[in-house]
Structures are given as structure tokens and as C-alpha cells.
Amino acid sequence: MVQTVSAAAQTMRADAKSLVGATMDVGPLIGTWFNAKRVTDHIASLVVTERDDALVVRLYGSSAEPVDWGPAEAVPHAFTGTNEVAGFHARYAFDGTRVEIAANVKMGILVIQTYTSFHDGSDRLSQFSREFFYRSTVAPAGREVRTGRRFLVGDWVNTNANTRWIKGFTCTDDGDTTRLRVQGASEPLDWGETEVTTYLDAAGDPAFHAEYDLGTVQAALAGNTGKDIVIIAAFLRRKDEDPANTFCREFFVPRS
């Protein structure tokens, strides 16, 4: 039975799990973030700072020269029942245009959703976008726009600096064969080079599968792409007496 909300109980069950008097560490949000997608119609980059105990965001819109949206105070939010920062909400109001920004952060990726509505009498439809950003002190270098399996070629780095598995990888393609060389976060630091099987989805975006024998561990890597990010799901099977198989999923962007 669906209950109606009364004035005395206007909360969800999750609200009761909120911590009281806890301090939220917004460190995972602080810094300069760049859109992983080189060609975007929306936000090219943003800077997140902490000023006078307030979280401040400054967005730069995509154009021939980045358009400075100016600073806006943001409200940070924590994951339910923890003091771990999950993301933020901010609002921009321009002449006849209002933009609501909802962002969440995980494993070094900042996902920004924008909700744009127009109040200038133009009857334009409201717009929604969802884009992915990574934190870096160096602006991304311009690179050729590649499609198909050629998109994978180059050096890629994990957005999660604290990864326990794969720090990065290099992908090469000679026209006939695509090869992968993985840099581990612990021994072995160099997984060596292996041939990968590549695939294309209906939109022409590439994916791949690779196998590594690392002695006590057999690793199967399943990679796919989206928003100019490479996502690798790693299935790690132990071959020793304690077969605690492990799964991880991590995100990679071109090395600047």
C-alpha cells in the first residue's frame, strides 16, 4: 500500500541514516577537471575550490575559446550513511537560461549531468547532458580524432591514482594486429605485451578482449569505450591454494 506523505514524516528511509555532526572531506572534488570527450557541445572543463568553508565551482563552456561561466557556490553531498563525498549540486542563472548541475565522483571520474531550461519566451525545449571528466594539472593535448579500433592506439592512464591493479596501458596497431602492454600497480609492474581481439558495436565504438598469464594469476581483460574513456573490467583468477578470484572495473583516459 502506498502511503501519503504527512507533514510529520516527509523523509525517505535513507534519510534516517544521515550522520550528525560529521565532517565531509571534499578533497576528492578539489582540482581542475577536463572533459574526457575532446569534442563536446557542453562543458569543456571546470575548476573546483574550497573557499571560506564553501565549495566553489567554475565552469568553462565549449567554444573556440572556453567560455567562463564564472564562480558558483556548490552544495557537496555524501554517500548515504557515510561522510564520504559523493558529489555536488550547483546552479547557474543567465539571461533567460537556468542550468542545474548534478555531479557525482567515483574512482577519479567526475560525472556531470546538466539540466538546462529556457525562460526567454523562445519556447526552446529544455536540454539534458551527461559527460565525464578527469582531474589533471595539465590540459589535454590536441590529438587526431580516431574511429574504430584505431581509437585505442596510444598511452592510457588510470583515473584512480590509488588503484591496486592496472596503472595504465599502451595500445598499438600495425593495421593487422592490435597489441596491448599493461603497467601494473604492483608486481609484476610490466605485464608484457599480448595480442588482443577487437570488436565494434553498432555505433562503430571499439571494444577488446585480452588474456594474461601472470604466474599465480590468470587475468582476463574486457575493455569497452564510451565518452572517449576506456573502461576495463578485469577478471583475476588465482591459481594457488587459496583461489580467491577477484573482479575490478576501472577507467582510463589518454595520458597527457
Rank of each mutant, 00 (worst) to 15 (best):
L55A: 04
V56A: 05
V57A: 15
V57Y: 08
V57C: 08
V57F: 08
R58V: 05
Y60V: 08
G61Q: 13
S63A: 11
A64S: 09
E65M: 11
E65A: 11
D68S: 02
G70E: 11
P71R: 08
A72I: 02
A74L: 06
A74V: 02
V75S: 15
V75H: 03
P76G: 06
P76T: 04
P76A: 07
H77N: 04
H77I: 00
A78H: 02
A78V: 10
F79M: 14
T80C: 07
G81W: 01
G81F: 03
T82H: 06
N83D: 14
N83I: 02
V85R: 05
V85D: 05
A86M: 10
G87F: 06
H89M: 11
A90F: 01
A90T: 05
Y92M: 05
Y92V: 00
Y92S: 06
A93S: 03
F94T: 00
F94P: 00
F94W: 01
D95K: 01
D95H: 01
T97F: 00
E100W: 09
A102N: 10
A103F: 03
A103M: 05
N104T: 14
V105D: 00
V105H: 01
K106C: 11
M107L: 12
I109V: 11
I109H: 13
L110S: 07
V111R: 08
I112W: 07
I112P: 06
T114G: 09
Y115W: 13
Y115T: 06
Y115D: 15
T116E: 12
S117C: 04
G121C: 01
G121Q: 01
G121K: 02
S122C: 00
R124L: 06
R124I: 00
R124W: 00
R124T: 01
S126I: 02
R130L: 09
R130A: 10
E131P: 11
A139P: 03
A139M: 07
A139W: 03
R143N: 09
E144S: 15
V145K: 13
V145D: 12
V145A: 14
R146V: 10
R146N: 11
T147C: 10
T147D: 11
R150Q: 13
L152A: 10
L152S: 14
L152V: 12
V153W: 14
G154K: 10
D155C: 03
D155P: 00
W156H: 12
T159R: 13
A161H: 13
A161E: 14
N162C: 08
T163R: 12
T163Y: 07
